[in-house]
Computed example of a mutant assay.
Amino acid sequence: MKNIKKLVTTACIIVFTFSIAGCNMIEKTPEAIANSTVAVVNGEKITRGDLDKNPNTMQLISQAKQQYGEDYAKNDEAVSVIKNQKGQILDSMITMKVIEQKAKELKLLPDENKLKSEMNSQIAQIKKQQFGNNTEQFDAALKAQGFTESSFKDMYLSQLKAQQIEQKVSDSLTKNVKVTDKQIEDYYKANQDKFTEQTDKMHLAHILVKTKDEAEKVKARLDKGEDFAKVAKEVSEDTNTKSKGGDLGTISYDDSQYDAQFMAGAKALKKGAISGPVKSSFGYHIIKCIDKQEYPVKPLSKVKDQIKKQLEDNQKTKLVSQKVQEWKKAANITKKDKNIM
């Protein structure tokens, strides 16, 4: 009964809106909004409905409701964030549309009947493994995410199709990629610390300043015998380590949280050594290697297959990325940002 009343109330509001707006200013219906164009790729439209049904958009809206409440659309900050994120999602959809069009041209589109069969099989597996084939629990989980079984299948089929298209296009473009023994050996020699029996570690301290000139002055003071920790407490710009005399603790060689240039400078130091100015995205560092633990390097024979796969994957990723950018550049793409929200 409540749902019927809600529908009736909504209908009355729509009629009232039409009656006062007249012919000059008619509010768009949800259907009209869903059918509005947000982008055109070589003559093919991407609609607002397509964008709003994208799983990334649905997740974005769910997060917005959690953070800003159900009335998130009335919050300027929320609207700004959502519009920016939806723009990025739309860019990804445009890229996928370009790839799909090229896949069609190259006769690489997956068979629709096989896709549906695979989709049904995978969903049945999810239903069995996660819900014990309990239909009510499965439907409730879908509802909590804003899906009906039908809309979930549409989304799942779309995502499965996109994955298979990307894989087929990638396989087609990269079938001739080969990695030579010399490339493998060169990579092995240049990246010895990646193939040690255990991960190499170093205990570091640093002093961060803004300019190279400041760093050279710091190094000169240290060369004259001043205490590293004392100088760090006095001049370092790193507020997280300044009070600790610049001590960063023990860092693994493969720690990706640190700037690559900083890590390269640190790895080059012997135990007890202090570097000259090392530039990073944060400024200039003077680095001290307090201690170092380096382990034996595995023989090439043990890591050759691993390196080969990594180099092949790197080449394939680069080749596909370059080709997709070429296709996008050649495509006729129009975006209608005003229709995103």
Rank of each mutant, 00 (worst) to 15 (best):
M1N: 12
K2F: 09
I4V: 10
K6P: 03
T9M: 13
I13H: 14
V15E: 10
F18Q: 13
F18P: 00
S19K: 10
M25R: 13
M25H: 14
T29P: 03
I33G: 03
V38E: 13
L51A: 07
L51S: 05
M58D: 13
L60Y: 13
I61G: 14
I61K: 15
E70M: 07
D71Q: 07
A78F: 12
V79N: 14
V81M: 15
N84I: 05
Q88P: 09
L90R: 06
D91P: 07
M93L: 11
A103E: 00
K104Y: 02
E105G: 02
K107S: 13
P110L: 03
E112H: 12
E118T: 06
E118I: 03
I123P: 07
K128A: 13
Q130M: 09
Q137G: 02
A141G: 00
K143H: 01
Q145T: 09
F147H: 12
S151Y: 05
F152W: 12
D154A: 12
M155Q: 12
K161W: 00
D171C: 05
K175N: 13
N176M: 08
V177N: 07
K178C: 03
V179W: 03
D181R: 03
A190I: 01
F195T: 05
T196Y: 02
L208F: 05
K212Y: 05
R221Y: 04
G225S: 04
F228T: 01
A229C: 02
V231E: 05
V231P: 00
D238P: 11
T239K: 09
T241F: 09
G246T: 05
I251F: 01
S256Q: 12
Q261P: 00
P277R: 01
Y284V: 02
I286Q: 03
I286T: 00
C289Y: 01
I290M: 08
P296S: 02
L300M: 08
Q315T: 09
S321Q: 15
K323V: 09
E326S: 15
N332T: 15
D337M: 12
